[in-house]
Design a protein around this nucleic acid. Sequence first.
DNA 1: ACCGCGATGTATCGCGGCGATACATCGTCG
DNA 2: CGACGATGTATCGCCGCGATACATCGCGGT
Lengths: 199, 199
Amino acid sequence: MLELAVLGLLQASPLHGYELRQRLKATLGTFRAFSYGSLYPTLRGMKEAGWLCEDDGNAEVVAGAPPLTGRRGKVVYKLTAEGKERFQELLAEAGPTSWEDETFGVHFAFFGQTDPEVRVRILEGRRSRLEERRESVRTTLARTRSRLDRYTLQLQEHGLESVEREVRWLTELIETERRTAPPAASHPPPNHPRERGAP
Amino acid sequence: MLELAVLGLLQASPLHGYELRQRLKATLGTFRAFSYGSLYPTLRGMKEAGWLCEDDGNAEVVAGAPPLTGRRGKVVYKLTAEGKERFQELLAEAGPTSWEDETFGVHFAFFGQTDPEVRVRILEGRRSRLEERRESVRTTLARTRSRLDRYTLQLQEHGLESVEREVRWLTELIETERRTAPPAASHPPPNHPRERGAP
DNA sequence: ACCGCGATGTATCGCGGCGATACATCGTCG
DNA sequence: CGACGATGTATCGCCGCGATACATCGCGGT
């Protein structure tokens, strides 16, 4: 999750933690925050896993004193070959993991590097996920509407409208995708995203 | 958080875990899920804290066999006096804790039992929280728009619109509140004239 | 008469992530 | 020259999620 985001950003250029976090905010916007409390441990984990390593800007020219004379300097991370592979691997993934609430935004943010077919699959998966939720809310709402007070009702309806709005958004995006990249010949592979089983 | 939600629901009527979870879904809608993985531990914690206790529906009539012959039966929880106090205490709270993302929905769901003044405060707090975020997104968006690819941009803008929409919603709610309960002339944030009892 | 299956029901575990916190350095403005 | 805010690295405790396990009940199918 954070792992994917980090891979995505570092794949563009090496960065240190702080900067990475700024980019995270700028890239994901309102969708996720990602505090340092998650970032640094993740970074360490990824380093241990071999996806990334420290980048010293290839051995300082003046051995004595780069801007950071004293103690702990910036730690710049960059992807290893394995890290790049890993990123591609995650990008290609189009299962429930890629369209759940917390994950979808991150995947979407890197759609630019994602295979067009995978894009559509994820968008459709996300949409049906939301449609499920919408139906569920609608039915329970219909069932309990009379028993709800003003505020609870308001909350339900606002939530419902949010979901509906997002579904509309996704539908538009899907249409654009289809228009831009017309389906391959007779069988457009992403036929029925309605699958809740094995990854 | 979950604590508040549980207090609110049990305050209406005693319930067991499973039913509690259903109500949670029905009450909070799309807003929070709350899995059993949080519910049961919370329930235990609250029991230990003395907010709630088990309710045996006052000693079964037929000692031998109620529907549940065998082993573990349903565990019905109800609020203690302290629990009710605690609920009131939490309801009266109108600080950052009550209008952050995760918390606001829960507070809102129990607005029916909340003091009108507190309601407005929370709604306004929530709104300015969102306005902050909106401005932050707007500026970083203006600053980086040119560097963003199609998808990232789309994500930013969708997020921005979501925030704007929620701000509009809140504004409407605040207006309604003011219209319905007009008494207090303007709104002095720190201290309000209507003080009861001793501070 | 039996079985299976989905709803009801209680409970735990690992882990991902958040917010608060601590600390150190840098640039800049009064 | 000293205070302050941005930059920068790092940890800790807590919350809540998703998966999982297990048990019982009521129902419809064969």
